[in-house]
């Protein structure tokens, strides 16, 4: 049985200055930001982005649905 390889020491990303910092940190060692607060704000931004994308997808699906009937009809081709 092979001896295991070296287990990497993971880091966490500061959403403020985008430096990686020690995983146990509460504040960023580079910009001083509150890591959990930035993470929460980022998660909110991502959720908002996903909601916007879902809305866009739904709108596009609504437009795309009539496509087969539209073929050759000249309606809504623009």
């Amino acid at each position: 049985m092979a001896e295991p390889g070296r287990i990497p020491v993971p880091l966490r990303l500061c959403r403020g200055c985008r430096r990686f910092v020690r995983i146990e940190n509460e504040a960023c060692d580079f910009c001083g930001a509150d890591l959990a607060a930035l993470e929460a704000a980022h998660a909110g931004d991502v959720a908002a982005l996903h909601a916007a994308m879902d809305a866009l997808r739904a709108a596009m699906a609504a437009h795309a649905a009539p496509l087969p009937e539209r073929e050759g009809s000249g309606v809504g081709e623009s």
């Binding site: 020491v9 430096r19 990686f20």
Partner: peptide
Amino acid sequence: FGPHESRLRNVMDEEIHFH
């Protein structure tokens, strides 16, 4: 590392870094 590490190595996960 440095401020571009995540952008450079991000394949599917922003938390990916050189290890």
